[in-house]
């Protein structure tokens, strides 16, 4: 279980990293935290000609509040998200999600940019940025592009990022008044990939949702912003309405079969998650129980 031979370049700046990517095209892979890339290389599932290591680029690290936006550098590690006061205050969904990502050793190395660029449909952070309506900032030979998170994920391990582009930051709208968040996933063991997960952001006004964004993961080839949420906005949520929403949700999902769960089971668990999410956000436990 040894990686095939590869060349290695440690980028000295973002510009230098972009030059290296331009020179090597899709024969290059960007090395960030390495928590997905290195195992794949050791299993010889991936054999890039060259690794462009961006680990030394301090300009890509750090968390800052800029106006209404929380800007998170691509190299920010999971562990930093977990302990950041800014994240806890302005985007607690990320903190709650990261606590479910793998194990401490992996969280100590893995980065938010790496996770988003890798685009595993079962991972937590892509669903979070979709639910948070975040913007992905990428830089390429022609300059900077800003891509809505909802338009960033194209499929399994597939994003809007071109081979000569580098994901440099994520911008998350800060949580406003009345904001509420819900994160939960069903995984066989702590730290495993979820069978189904849900990252949700809501604005609750009185007994209703003024806003509700539901980012499901592990239910298709990319994180899904569920349209079923719209049925629950600005209305009094009744068990019957919630049942309609869960039915609508099942139609939206296109879950894969794998060793842990059939598509039917994933649809079922997504419905349970939706009920429990709504019950928790509205503080109405009775809605969480099967009708």
């Amino acid at each position: 279980m040894k990686a095939a031979a590869f060349a290695y370049a440690r980028a000295t700046s973002v510009v230098n990293a972009l030059e290296l990517l331009a020179a090597h095209g899709d024969k290059a892979k960007v090395l960030s935290g390495g928590q997905s890339l290195m195992p794949a290389m050791n299993l010889r599932l991936l054999s890039p000609d060259i690794l462009v290591d961006i680990g030394g680029l301090a300009e890509l690290r750090g968390i800052a509040v800029r106006g209404d936006l929380l800007a998170i550098g691509a190299l920010t590690r999971h562990v930093d998200l977990l302990h950041s006061p800014e994240v806890a205050l302005h985007a607690p969904l990320l903190r709650d999600a990261v606590a479910q990502v793998a194990h401490p050793a992996i969280r100590n190395r893995g980065t938010i940019g790496g996770s988003l660029a890798h685009a595993d449909p079962a991972s937590e952070l892509p669903a979070c940025v979709v639910a948070l309506d975040a913007t992905i900032v990428v830089r390429g030979p022609l300059g900077e592009r800003r891509i809505a998170a909802t338009a960033f994920f194209n499929g399994i391990y597939d994003t809007a990022l071109a081979p000569d582009e580098l994901l440099v930051a994520v911008e998350v709208p800060v949580a406003g008044h009345g904001s509420a968040f819900f994160f939960h996933e069903y995984a066989r063991r702590h730290g495993d990939y979820a069978l189904v997960g849900l990252a949700a952001r809501a604005v609750v006004a009185g007994d209703r949702f003024a806003e509700l964004r539901l980012g499901f993961f592990a239910v298709g080839d990319r994180p899904l912003l569920a349209a079923a949420a719209n049925r629950l906005i600005n209305v009094s949520v009744t068990p019957a309405l919630l049942a309609e929403a869960t039915t609508a949700l099942a139609d939206e999902l296109d879950p894969q079969e794998d060793q842990q769960a059939s598509p039917a089971m994933r649809r079922h668990l997504a419905a349970v998650l939706l009920r429990r999410c709504v019950a928790a956000l509205l503080a109405r436990p009775e809605l969480g129980v099967t009708s």
């Binding site: 299993l43 063991r189 702590h190 730290g191 495993d192 990939y193």
Partner: peptide, 28 residues
């Protein structure tokens, strides 16, 4: 609760790795 070597009908072991073969962990 967890451990199972999953073979397909052609005799391929389909979960020969630590991500898919679930050993019991302290958290559970």
């Amino acid at each position: 609760l967890f451990e199972k070597c999953i073979y397909d009908e052609r005799g391929q072991l389909t979960n020969a790795n630590m991500a898919d073969y679930l050993v019991p962990m302290s958290g559970e």
